[in-house]
Design a protein around this nucleic acid. Structure first.
Lengths: 254, 254
DNA sequence: ATTGACCTTCACGCAACGTAAAGGTTTAAA
DNA sequence: TTTAAACCTTTACGTTGCGTGAAGGTCAAT
C-alpha cells in the first residue's frame, strides 16, 4: 500500500506540514519521490511514523526520537530514563509553582478590597444591563415592571460592603451546593443549607420573599437553559438538584 | 535613585537584553531616555519590574503579566485562578506521561512487549479522547450524544479480560477476513463468518445492535479513508469486501 | 588620545510546526 | 475537451522569550 502525503497524514492524524517537516529534518523520509515530485510513503514509513508518534506522546524531543528510531543500536531505555528524570524534575517544579500560586491567591483574596470605586460602579451598571438583556422581558412579564425596577434600583443602591457580602454568599452557596450534590439527596442537611443560602442571596435582589416565588424561580433554573448551563457548569444535574432542594425547603414538596 | 540599563539588570538579576525586550513589548518602559539615547529607569520602574518577575516566577505568560501590571482594573486573582487550573491540568497530564514512560521502560527492560493491560490502561483515556476528536462530531450528529457517551463509558469500564477478548476477536476477524477475501465472494461462508465476528466485536462498543446501524458502519468503512486505510492495510479492497459481506449478512442486500 | 566599559539598534537563532502565497499536477465532472 | 476542484510542490514569515553576536556611538579614566 502506498500513500501520498495527505493520505498518510489522515491515517496518522498529523498535518501534511508535519510530514514535510519530518522529511526536512530527516526523521522520516518518503519511500520515494514520484515523477511529479510528490512524496510517496510505503508501509515501512507508516510503521516508523507510528513509532515516532508514540515517543512523541511520551514527550521526547524530536532529536532524541531521531536518535532512537534511526539508530537501532541506540539505547531507547537510557533515553527514556533520562527523560523520566527530566519529567520528575518538571513535576516537582510544577508542584512548587502551584503551591506559590495558591498562596498568592489566598493572600490576595484576604485583602481583596474592591476599593476601585469606578470598577464597582461600572460593574453594577453592567449587572443591571445584563439582567435586563437576558431576563428582562420574561421577568417583567411575570412579576411586573415595578418589581423589576425596584430590583434594579436595589442593585444600583448597593453599597460596597453589601456587594462583598453577596459575593461571599454566592461563593458559599456554590461550594455548599457542590458538596450537597455529592450526597445526591436534596432533602439532606447540606442541600437544605444550600437552599437557605440561596434564599439569603435572593433577598439582596428581592424586596419581598414568598415561598411560591422562590419555588417558581427554582423551576425556572431547570427550564431555562441559560440558568441550567450556569448551575450545571461544574456538575451536570446541579440545577435540578437545587430545584428539588428548594421545593423541599419551601415546603412545596414533602 | 536612577539606574542605567545594566544597573537595573544587576539589581534585579536579569539580562540587559531582557530589559530591552520588555521595553520593546511595552511591558516595562524606562522612565526617560537621556540625551545620548540611554534608557534611564527610576524607582517606580524598579517596583514594577519586581512585580513582573514575581508573576513570571509563578509561570504566567508575559502578555498576561502585561494585563495585570498595566491595567490596575484587571483582576489579578481571576488571572491567577485561571493560571492555577492550567497548572493543575498540566500536572495531571505530566503524571500520566510519567506513568507511561515508566511502563515503557519497564516493558523494554524486561525485553517484553508492553502487556496488554498496561498499554491499555495508558491508552484507554487517550482512545476515548482521540475518538472524540476524530469522529466525535460526526458520530454525535448521527447517533446522538447519549450513544457516544455510553460507548465511551463502556470503553473506560472495560476489564482486562474483556479487552483480551476483544483483541482475540479482532485478530480472528482479521484472519478470517483475509481468508475470505481470497475467495472473492462476500456471500461465502467464510465471509459471512467474518461479518458475524465483526458484529460480535462491535457489541463490545455498542449497547444496542441494529442491522441498519451495522450496515451503515460498513458503508462508512468504505467512505472514510481512515477506516479504509486500516482495513486495506494488507490487501486493498478489503474494506469494500467487508462491507459487501455485512450488507449480505444484515440482509440489506440479497 | 586612547582604552575599555558602557550604551544603542538591528537581526539571526531556538522547537515544532501553522499558515499563507505562488505555482505545477491529477482527477472528476460539465 | 475544457475546466474547476483538489491535490501536490517549495519558500518563507510568525509563534515565545529571550541569547548571542555585529556594527557602531558615549563616557570615565589613564
Amino acid at each position: 500500500m502506498e500513500y501520498t502525503i495527505q493520505k498518510l497524514a489522515m491515517l496518522a492524524g498529523v498535518s501534511t506540514r508535519t510530514l514535510r517537516y519530518y522529511d526536512q529534518i530527516e526523521i522520516l523520509k518518503p519511500a520515494r519521490i514520484n515523477s511529479s515530485g510528490y512524496r510517496i510513503y510505503g508501509q515501512k514509513e507508516v510503521d516508523k511514523l507510528q513509532q515516532i508518534l508514540f515517543y512523541k506522546e511520551l514527550g521526547l524531543h524530536l532529536d532524541k526520537i531521531k536518535e532512537i528510531v534511526n539508530a537501532p543500536s541506540f539505547d531507547a531505555v537510557t533515553a527514556l530514563n533520562d527523560h523520566r528524570k527530566q519529567l520528575l524534575d518538571k513535576r516537582s517544579q510544577l508542584d512548587r509553582l502551584i503551591e506559590n500560586v495558591e498562596k498568592t491567591i489566598a493572600s490576595n483574596e484576604g485583602r481583596m478590597v474592591m476599593k476601585d470605586k469606578e470598577k464597582f460602579e461600572g460593574f453594577k451598571q453592567k449587572m443591571v444591563e445584563d439582567n435586563e438583556n437576558k431576563y428582562g422581558k420574561e421577568i417583567r412579564e411575570k412579576y411586573g415592571d415595578e418589581a423589576v425596577n425596584k430590583s434594579n434600583q436595589k442593585i444600583l443602591n448597593m453599597t460596597e460592603s453589601e456587594h462583598e457580602e453577596i459575593t461571599k454568599l454566592s461563593e458559599e452557596l456554590h461550594s455548599t451546593l457542590a458538596e450537597a450534590f455529592k450526597t445526591g439527596d436534596p432533602s439532606s442537611q447540606l442541600a437544605q443549607k444550600a437552599a437557605d443560602l440561596h434564599k439569603q442571596w435572593l433577598m439582596f435582589y428581592w424586596n419581598e420573599y414568598s415561598k411560591e416565588a422562590h419555588a417558581g424561580l427554582a423551576q425556572m433554573y431547570v427550564d431555562d437553559e441559560r440558568f441550567t448551563a450556569y448551575y450545571d457548569k461544574e456538575q451536570p444535574g446541579t440545577a435540578e438538584f437545587l430545584r428539588d432542594a428548594i421545593l423541599i425547603y419551601t415546603g412545596m414538596r414533602p
